[in-house]
Structure formats: C-alpha cells, structure tokens
C-alpha cells in the first residue's frame, strides 16, 4: 500500500483548515432547525396570549380561563369587595390592592396556589386551597399559610372596556 505521501505537513495546510471551518459551520447551522423544532410550535406560542371577553361576568361573579395551560381567575368585584380589599393590606405578604389591579372592579390572578401548585377554590370572601388549607382574600393576597406568597398577577392589558388580553402588559 502506498503510504509515503502521508505526512503531518498536511495538517498545517491553510486550505484544509479553512475548509474544515466552513464545513463545521455548515454542520452547526444544520443543527439549528433540528433543535428549533423542539421549541414550542407556533400554535403553542399562540396560547401565550389569551383574549377574554368580560361582558358576561356579572358583578361578584368569577370566570376561570386557561392561559398558557394555567387557570387564571377573573373576578368582577362588587363595591363591597373592592372596599374590603382596599381597606386591608393582606396578611403574610402585605401589598396594596391598588398594586394588584388595573381597574378596581376587575381582579385578574393566576389560580395556582403559591404553596404546592394546587388550584384554590372560590369560597366565601376570597379563595381557599383545599390541598393544605391556605386562604386568600378578594385581592388574591394570602391571609393564612402555609402558602408564602400572594396569588400572582399575570401580565394583561385592557384592549377595550370589556376585553382584556392576558400574556402581555
């Protein structure tokens, strides 16, 4: 077998190096579509924003919508509920009600208990989580543990008087 033509000088050859770099870049670029295909597809991303029509929620009524697969509570608060919420600053994690709403009559919170991720039930004033007994008021603030934090307020905006889009502030 002819082997004498092989020598290590080849390795230092500029053309071979350049070609390897260009080829390697191509292989790396080819990986992009494969990796990207595992990211959320456009129909999943479309769920990043949820549009909610508020017309049919009566004062005192609550509506649960799915946003990115999670329940979001939309509470149409009565003047009494607003009054009760603004008078206190909550319990374990004090926060003014005005920081948690854009319009006092509409409370929008993610319905996932900040303790272990159960979905709290609307009971009496506020919510109670049946998993471990945490309680939240009508502003979604935790007033009894073991939950450590208030219910999270998702980013949302009013696109009309009676329409909100959850997902982008």
């Amino acid at each position: 077998m002819v082997t004498e033509a092989l020598n290590d000088g080849d390795r230092r050859n500029f053309l071979i190096k350049l070609t390897s770099v260009v080829g390697g870049a191509g292989v790396a670029a080819t990986c992009v579509p494969f990796v990207a295909s595992m990211n959320p597809s456009s129909d999943v991303l479309a769920k990043a924003e949820t549009e909610v029509d508020l017309t049919n929620i009566t004062p005192g009524g609550m509506h649960t919508v799915a946003w990115q697969g999670k329940p979001v509570f939309i509470l149409h608060r009565t003047p009494e509920q607003i009054k009760a919420s603004t008078e206190s600053n909550g319990g374990l994690q004090p926060e003014a009600d005005s920081n948690r709403v854009q319009k006092p009559e509409w409370l929008v919170v993610i319905g996932v208990c900040t303790h272990m991720g159960c979905v709290p039930n609307k009971e009496g004033p506020g919510w109670e989580c049946h998993c471990h007994g945490s309680q939240y008021d009508d502003s979604g603030r935790v007033i009894r543990g073991p939950a450590p934090k208030n219910l999270e307020v998702p980013p949302y905006r009013f696109v009309a008087d009676n329409k909100i889009v959850i997902g982008k502030a």
Binding site: P33, F34, S37, S41, D43
Partner: peptide, 13 residues
C-alpha cells in the same frame, strides 16, 4: 399539516 405549518422548521424536516 401541523408539522408543515406550525412546528419550527417542520416544513424543512
């Protein structure tokens, strides 16, 4: 069709 339209680079794959 989901692959062709929604999946990132699904049409390419």
């Amino acid at each position: 069709q989901h692959i062709m339209r929604d999946v990132n680079y699904g049409w390419l794959l």
